[in-house]
Amino acid sequence: MSSERKRRKAVVDQFLCVACGYCVKVCPLQAIAVIGGVTARADVQKCVGCGRCAAECPASVIEIQEANS
């Protein structure tokens, strides 16, 4: 295992997202938004990868992934 610390971010499966907006409600940093009523998208600048949205998403279509940046 690498000791290097990677940033973790919420990634939404935009094909399966139902745009209910519950992730927006539970995000403590307002780092996720529903774009045009079609899908949710996390703001990589604000997201700290806490995983709250992933846990609460009714459709379970949000994953916390390690980002390269």
């Binding site: 139902v18 745009a19 209910c20 519950y22 045009g36 009523g37 079609v38 998403c57 009714p58």
Partner: peptide, 21 residues
């Protein structure tokens, strides 16, 4: 399942998403 599972298949949610698309 999860508390708001209804949102996944709610007909109104599906329809409004289609309209937005």
């Amino acid at each position: 399942f999860k508390p708001r599972s209804w949102c996944v298949y709610c007909p109104m949610g599906t329809m409004t998403q289609l309209i937005c698309k």
